Simulated assay, not measured.
Amino acid sequence: MTVTLQRMPQKRTYLMCPPEFYAVDYAINPWMDTSTPVDTELALKQWERLRETLTGLGHTVHVLPAEPGLPDMVYAANGAFTVDGVAYGARFKYAQRTAEAAAHRAYLAARGWTCVPAAETNEGEGDFAYLPEAYGGLILAGYGFRTEPVAHVEAQDVLGRPVVSLHLVDPRFYHLDTALAALDDSTVAYYPAAFSEASQRVLRQLFPDAVRADDADAYAFGLNLVSDGRHVVLNSEATGMAHKVEAAGYTPVLVELSELKKGGGSIKCCVAELR
């Protein structure tokens, strides 16, 4: 059934980092294949198209300068998690990405953010999603591959919001943002098979009206999306997911990001929200 209600967009502020030094020189997730060539010029064009799409929808996009030696820095969502002017910093699992956390912290601190470095391993907004209107303000937090469960406790203390822990069980969906997305301030879409049975029960209880993705949606990175409450920016491969969000009353906006998918990320991985 197609939903006819009018979804209202909200102006958002985002942070992105250009893929100037992007490469797949190592493999730290199942999508990365060091034998597959990466076209950096095409990656830059696709990234720029994503940035233009977001600004064209009326959002503000700040740009974090890329740094040599950090090929995954383009995945800007992983560097921190922000709520109400407070940035809970990342502490990456893999040494190849460790220096990204300091770059994000320095950028945000210079612009007036209260930055709290993490004592526990977490990968920023890659494993945290915020729903300000769900249950008075709720953080959903993933664990199982990158972020440690103890970081959920730390995030709750730092940000002053209740945190619900969700157990990821499929290594292809190693970050929460590959398996779950906020469609607006109280609604989510998710791929049930990426989560443990217990976490699936929690999600069904919390979000009975969620948009549920299937295998094809998830493998096309269809959950790795950015939404302003009306416009849902999706990987162009995720046509099935586009139909599902459209049926739920949202407006899908497709952007090709094939080169960035080679590193195990898509739309959301490239976009951090600054709240």
Rank of each mutant, 00 (worst) to 15 (best):
G79Q: 14
L50C: 00
A106R: 15
T40P: 03
H59D: 01
G79L: 03
W31E: 00
M32P: 09
W47H: 09
A119V: 13
Y107S: 02
K45A: 07
A80W: 04
E67I: 05
H104P: 05
M8I: 14
A90R: 05
Y14T: 01
W31S: 07
A23N: 13
H104I: 02
N29T: 13
A95Q: 10
D25M: 12
R7E: 11
L5N: 09
P9K: 10
G112V: 02
K93I: 07
E48K: 07
A90Y: 10
G89L: 00
E123Y: 08
E125V: 08
T4W: 12
T55Q: 15
G79P: 10
E123P: 01
W47M: 04
A109V: 11
W113A: 12
G69Q: 11
Y94C: 05
E125T: 11
L54G: 06
R105G: 03
M8Y: 11
Y94Q: 10
F81L: 08
R105Q: 15
L108Y: 08
L108W: 03
D39S: 04
A43H: 05
Q96Y: 08
D72Y: 01
L57F: 12
A129Q: 15
K93Y: 15
L50A: 00
G112D: 14
L54T: 05
T82P: 02
A119H: 15
G79H: 12
A76D: 06
V116W: 05
T98S: 04
L70F: 10
V38S: 05
F21D: 08
P71F: 14
T98C: 01
Y88T: 12
Q96G: 06
T55G: 13
Y88D: 13
P68T: 03
Q46K: 08
A109F: 08
A95P: 03
M32D: 06
L44V: 07
L54P: 00
K45N: 09
R7H: 13
T60E: 11
T4N: 14
H62V: 04
A118S: 15
V86F: 02
T53Q: 08
L42Q: 14
E123L: 12
P117K: 03
F81R: 00
V116D: 06
Q6F: 02
E120M: 12
T121Q: 13
G89V: 01
H62A: 11
A23K: 05
Y14K: 03
G89D: 00
G126Y: 01
H59C: 03
A43N: 06
C115N: 09
A80Q: 14
Y88G: 08
A101V: 12
P19L: 00
R51N: 04
A129F: 09
A103W: 00
R97S: 06
L42N: 07
T53K: 00
A103L: 14
G79A: 06
M16Q: 07
Q96I: 00
W47K: 06
N122H: 14
K45D: 03
Y22M: 02
P68I: 04
L64Y: 03
T53P: 08
V83D: 00
D33A: 15
G58P: 02
D39L: 04
Y14L: 02
T40H: 04
V86R: 09
G112K: 00
T34W: 13
L64W: 01
F128Y: 15
Y130V: 05
T13V: 14
T114H: 13
